[in-house]
Amino acid sequence: MNDANMKVSICGVELKNPVITASGTFGFGREYAEYYDLSRLGAICVKGLTLNPRQGNRPPRIAETPAGILNSVGLQNPGVKHFIEHEIPFLKQFDTKIIANISGNTIEEYCRMAEILYDSGVDLIEMNISCPNVKQGGVAFGTKADTVYHITQEVKKYCRQPLIVKLSPNVTDIKEMAKAAQDGGADAVSLINTLLGMAIDIYTRRPVLANNVGGLSGPAVKPIAVRMVWEVASVVDIPIIGMGGIMNGEDAIEFMLAGATAVAVGTANFIDPLACVKVVDGIRNYLLSYDIEDINSIIGKVELN
């Protein structure tokens, strides 16, 4: 076999391969464009946007933990209007899809952002209701099924693009949140956002992060993420974007077998700026090695014991 089909479709938007950059790990693509042609990516999900610019949290904003990192950036970003004016024209140079990730303090802010993005040329909108690093909004909307349903239904009214709801793992039952998102009209769900964590410097007796707590990502969270993708796949019909500690093609395949139609690569970008393209190559090698003609044929095909 010489080649395999790598194309997947997320609610009518065709991606040339299933690899997406995870929001907050890729800026607006500029830094990574110095390392490779961004057209090699299935899609670019940009740094989380808010209605107005945000400075983010005080440093230190990062702590390394075994096989993972804790971050508390706190959504530092230049605001959605700056993004449309200054970043979309840059991203449009590349033959890939653009996903705008949005966060708000109120449902109205989310709706307003969806409105502002209506004619922006972004291909998909990812609604972040799971950021653990901001006081208001963020995860506050993502931990109760009825609020997930309500905010999804409201924001969907203003969206031209398909709406992805990004789910928090910091809940008792993620299946309930996924079902609520689907019932509210979500076109897809993405999971997992980071797990709330903490690291303490035992010599100063202070938390390493200025924000005290932050979001855990990296290989340490991967088994939890795979399990949650598998659970969610059993209760929703909409596509799932799976993420959490993906470092290579094999990890991506694991998420797809669990039920993800596409995958996002996050923390790995910090370790190797070429991580995303290596994941693309790794997926292709797996398909070719096992004579799999179409990547879509492995989605959700884990065989349970």
Partner: peptide, 12 residues
Amino acid sequence: RMGCGIGACLVC
């Protein structure tokens, strides 16, 4: 304290 070192992760 740094993450990526290239200006993408915004932690430093």
